[in-house]
Amino acid sequence: MEQSIEKIGPTIGQSLLENPKMSMRNVDVFYGDKQAIYDVNLDIGKNEVLSMIGPSGCGKSTFLRCLNRMNDTIEGCKVTGSFDLEGKNIYHPKMDVVPLRARVGMVFQKPNPFPKTIYDNVAYGPKIHGLVESKTDLDEIVESSLQKAGLWDEVKDRLDQQGTGLSGGQQQRLCIARTIAISPEVILMDEPCSALDPIATSKIENLITELSENYTIAIVTHSMQQAARVSDRTAYFHLGKLVEVNDTQHLFTNPDHELTEAYITGRFG
């Protein structure tokens, strides 16, 4: 059941919010001559978990990477439209990506701990940003971040071992600890569980729920169950367009758009 882009039409549902944390308007993304995102308008609310779902190649990861300008590192990638973080456009020429990324952190699809010790992995962010003055402060941050990531009990006796020596799920939680060590306001997660087994996945999902108390989280996932479990709102992307955004329960039980329905009932994806 292939759909042409023209037939999709405007976004259905509740894509805009009052007083959002981030708000994106008229977003187009190009890789060279190829357009990957078509005119997306979307808001992310404070301390909410927004999940983005859709078939592979629908542009959800691309969109996510725009939110802290990770696409800057890809050659030939062009982004237009406005991305506001608390009212300031992050693509403004004067916007500095370094503090931006300290405010909007990112967790990647494949766990990518640095080839350093567990301690140094977590301490890396605070160190480079100069957030701590003393070793005790740093120890505190490392401990609290690892605790928040639910990894402390597993690694507290081997903080000086290589981060790459952990299991896949532990590595991913280490990456999350690394991200929250610099207390970002928004955490972006790009399919954080796609490389993990079910037990590790459930641990990460619990963690996301916990973190949502303090952080705004945008998560891209290929698993509809995961989106349903962790998120407050869900956005469905298709062929680079934002088809529907709604309250998670509403979207999964009573989708407004026929494409969304087709996707969640498993007719393609």
């Binding site: 500095d96 370094v98 503090p99 300290a102 405010r103 480079i128 940003h129 100069g130 957030l131 610099i182 207390s183 306001e185």
Partner: peptide, 17 residues
């Protein structure tokens, strides 16, 4: 803490650049 973080980050930016 968050507010504090941004301030600290911005304070060190010049040196880092």
């Amino acid at each position: 803490k968050k507010v504090n973080t941004i301030e600290l980050v911005n304070k060190n930016l010049k040196k880092r650049y």
